[in-house]
Design a protein around this nucleic acid. Structure first.
Length: 530
DNA sequence: TATAGGACTTAGGATTCTGCTT
DNA sequence: AAGCAGAATCCTAAGTCCTATA
């Protein structure tokens, strides 16, 4: 089939790579003369570069970021670096800077833009433009001179913009990026990669799920092994075995070490500290309960109380002995050491594969348990969402409660109440019609009974649908389904489910998702088993 | 054998679009 | 036609994990 992988040498990622290079935003256009910046109450004409940076801050005046001291300090520091020496002499206090006129100019401009028909709207600024990061630090504009281009040697090599040169053009088929540069704040690499809908990414995605399916075949052996290792003479091995148990049972992330201070204080499994867990020999009628409370990726809180097997509990007590709260729980363990071990247990196995495996197998099991073939499409979709939700909860994929949640829930509740009333009225109507038919026994009255019953049935169905909607909405309040759907659930499970129950694929995947999962839609039949 | 560098995946919030209701 | 909510899409930071290098 078209998804069959073509033979490539080890490490070779593509045979042919041609593209047009990154798009660069136009250079900064100065403000009109009548839009002014004020310092200490007096208008002050800024140099072009200084003015441009001022506009970034001005645009964000409504954002709460600009009320934060750290944001203000970072911004002012970076802004002053770009000023002329004359400007540096004058502009010494951010509090004396008045950006309000510039702010208003952009608000008005934005309003005007919104009113324009689609085609005339200005192209949006690309990611290579200069802007202020979340901490107020200045991200510099990326110039062609910063960018490395990667493509096929024999392809049409992208042209840099007029008067500019690329930093470098290379022909490296062992990597998949099209262009790269170094970002100025953290000195990290940035890449332009192919779309998720591309064949290259699709094949990679497919491979990922195939590795997870292979884990399904050996996971029982691996579980038996880590249970044995809980009793190992080597503390290091015990720590590895307990951590792996958490990764497997709770779908925790690996938890690489990261540099302190520079980044938020977040952890994963291997980087858990003593302060992140509490041990309860007994709790709420359960034995050996571990209470987790820590910040994970993106500072999302992980809070969970789990009853664990006794040897795990005993080991945790041992690991915590004579340690400070801020000491590492698994002090002998690194993700590298863990992954070396996993690689040895199964080719291609790493800590993150457990998340993929457990997510996908959970979806498959939940779909099996929750789908009722007698349900209508809406009912089956609720089951699908619930299965998806079980996975999102397992992986701790959260979202902040949408700002409009309470209001829209209320609107929905009002609709339900109105519908209930209609149903009651329709019930009365049916009763009345039946009585009339009993009295008269004529055909017209009989037809009327049928008509009223039909109406009642339709209203009842509408009410049921609204109730389903409300349930789904409430259950989904703080849970993000998208992340698991896009990154953890083997799409073939969903495709098979759709085929089996006659659900159109569009009901569960939107256009972008259908493009990303084209490979799965193509190859999975209704009897696909993860 | 540690560590930095590098490439790639995963993440939730912000922004924009769409289609419904009024 | 406007206003709105929710869906779709964009954005890019924050992770994972491997390799090169001292």
């Amino acid at each position: 089939s078209r998804w069959e992988e073509e033979k490539k040498e080890d490490g070779v990622k593509w045979m042919q790579l041609e593209h047009r290079g990154p798009y660069f935003v136009p250079l900064y256009e100065p403000l009109p003369e009548d839009v002014q910046f004020y310092y200490d109450g007096k208008p002050l004409k800024l140099s072009l570069a200084t003015e441009e940076i001022a506009t970034f801050y001005a645009k964000m005046l409504d954002h709460e970021y600009t009320t934060k001291e750290i944001f203000q300090n970072n911004f002012f520091h970076d802004w002053r670096k770009e000023m002329t020496s004359e400007e540096q002499e004058i502009i010494k206090d951010l509090d004396k800077c008045d950006f309000r006129e510039i702010h208003k100019y952009f608000v008005d401009k934005n309003e005007a833009r919104k009113a324009l028909p689609k085609e005339e709207k200005q192209v949006r600024a690309g990611s290579y433009d200069m802007f202020l990061g979340p901490m107020g630090m200045l991200k510099k504009r990326i110039m062609p001179e910063d960018v490395i281009i990667n493509c096929s040697r024999d392809s049409k090599i992208p042209e840099p913009p007029e008067g500019h040169k690329w930093k470098e053009v290379r022909f490296d088929n062992t990597v998949t990026w099209l262009a790269s540069w170094t970002e100025n704040i953290q000195n990290t690499f940035k890449y332009i990669m192919l779309n998720p809908s591309s064949k290259l990414k699709g094949e990679k995605d497919w491979q990922k799920y195939e590795v997870a399916r292979r884990l399904k075949g050996v996971v029982h052996t691996i579980r038996a092994q880590y249970r044995r290792d809980w009793k190992s003479k080597e503390i290091k091995e015990r720590q590895r075995a307990v951590a792996l148990y958490f990764i497997d049972k709770l779908a925790l992330r690996a938890g690489n070490e990261k540099e302190e201070g520079e980044t938020a204080d977040t952890v994963g499994c291997c980087s858990l500290r003593v302060e992140h867990i509490q041990l309860h020999p007994q709790l709420d009628g359960q034995e050996h309960v571990v209470e987790f409370d820590f910040l994970g990726k993106d500072s999302i809180r992980y809070y969970n109380k789990v009853s664990v097997e006794k040897p795990v509990f005993k080991n945790l007590q041992l690991f915590m002995k004579n340690k400070d709260p801020t000491d590492d729980l698994f002090d002998q363990l690194t993700t590298n050491f863990l992954n070396k071990h996993l690689q040895h247990l199964m080719d291609g196995l790493t800590a993150k594969v457990f998340r993929t495996y457990n997510a996908s197998i959970t979806l498959q099991e939940q779909l099996k348990a929750l789908t009722n073939p007698e349900d209508n499409v809406a009912g089956k979709l609720l089951s699908y969402n619930r299965a998806n939700r079980a996975v999102a909860i397992l992986c701790n994929h959260q979202r902040s409660v949408p700002k409009t949640f309470a209001r829209s829930m209320q609107v929905l509740q009002e609709k339900i109440d109105a519908k209930k009333k209609q149903v009651e009225e329709a019930q009365e109507e049916v009763k009345k019609a039946e009585e009339e038919f009993k009295d008269t026994e004529d055909a017209k009255a009989e037809a009327n009974v049928e008509k009223k019953k039909k109406l009642l049935k339709r209203l009842e169905e509408q009410l049921a649908k609204l109730n389903v909607q409300a349930t789904d909405k409430e259950e989904n309040k703080q849970i993000a389904l998208g992340t698991s759907k896009l990154n953890y659930l083997d799409p073939r499970i969903s495709v098979a489910w759709c085929k089996k129950f006659g659900i159109p694929i569009e009901k569960i995947y939107n256009k972008t998702q259908r493009e990303k999962f084209a490979w799965a839609i193509d190859m999975a039949g209704e009897d696909f088993e993860f």
